[in-house]
Design a protein around this nucleic acid. Structure first.
Length: 271
DNA sequence: CGAGCAACCTGCATGC
DNA sequence: TGCATGCAGGTTGCTC
């Protein structure tokens, strides 16, 4: 999936095309996503106005005059703007048809994504209320992460991928940030010094900010909402490079599994 | 309570 | 060529 930078890239891509447009029709071809899509939106949304878009972690928020759509792209989801007449492809599950013959089209082969609807305060939604700080927010800092980690026994990689700790750090960027910070992904969270967490916080911010700046990482089928690929893949230092030389010390990179996720690191540079 | 892991689902690469 | 296997960007919700 789309990690945070891909979601932000998608949001920026669709925002100018959907804001201040009226919704003409909602077509739900397949409601069986991670949670069933509320069929009510097909009658509530037509006639309403899209007022703004936002993002919280990996959730894309589409505010309308009637309530808010909370969209998650799961592992394989994408959204893009199409001509409403464009023929649907396999896995094009939902169209939000706008008043200018375009549509916001949600596509998700694996259906791990979601499109939720709420009329209540969005940040109090059950899916959002337990989320930790945004990685680029100033509240995500060394003191916060260090204090939170004390007495935690999970490997640091699992720790930073926990959305209650910080949102948006998925498998790719967790691998990259730990490499950048010189920390072994296996290291027990509670035993890492404050000084090393300072490096880790800086690395997470840097890797996420860079990825957003270049439009996210393209793997397989991710494309930004304008159909252009992201360019971050070429700057990956460890993810997908198992067995290849470390770019700093030339030791072959090691691949292990942590919490069932592929983990690539340099045994020499990361301790 | 935390830790570990199976589950959700499709597509694709690999090996026989 | 066909078929079985394992793996993929995420997250929830079991069991221990």
């Amino acid at each position: 999936m789309p990690e945070l930078p891909e979601v932000e890239t998608s949001r920026r891509g669709i925002d100018p095309h959907v804001c201040n447009r009226q919704i003409h029709q909602v077509i739900i071809r397949e409601a069986r996503l991670r949670w069933p899509v509320d069929p009510q939106i097909a009658r509530i949304l037509p006639g309403s106005q899209i007022t703004s878009t936002d993002r919280r972690g990996k959730y894309l928020l589409i505010y309308t005059s009637e309530g808010c759509l909370i969209v998650h792209l799961g592992m394989s989801g994408s959204v893009r703007i199409v001509e409403a007449s464009e023929p649907v492809k396999k896995h094009d599950h939902i169209d939000i048809v706008l008043d200018n013959q375009t549509a916001l089209r949600y596509h998700d082969p694996r259906r791990f994504g979601a499109m939720l609807w709420t009329t209540a305060p969005v940040l109090e939604h059950e899916r959002l209320r337990h989320l930790g700080p945004e990685p680029l927010d100033e509240s995500f800092d060394t003191s916060y992460l260090y204090r939170y980690s004390r007495s935690k026994k999970v490997p640091v990689k699992t720790f930073i991928m926990d959305s209650r700790v910080v949102v948006g750090v998925g498998n790719i960027y967790a691998n990259e940030a730990l490499y950048m910070a010189g920390i072994s992904p296996k290291k027990e969270s509670g035993t890492i010094s404050r000084q090393r967490y300072e490096r880790l916080v800086a690395a997470i911010k840097e890797v996420i900010a860079n990825a957003i700046n270049v439009g996210g990482t393209t793997l397989r089928d991710f494309v930004g909402s304008d159909g252009k690929p992201g360019y971050f893949k070429q700057s990956l230092q460890v993810y997908g490079r198992a067995g290849q030389p470390c770019l700093q010390c030339h030791t072959p990179l090691t691949e292990i599994r942590i919490a069932q996720r592929s983990t690539v690191y340099c045994r020499k540079c990361q301790r």
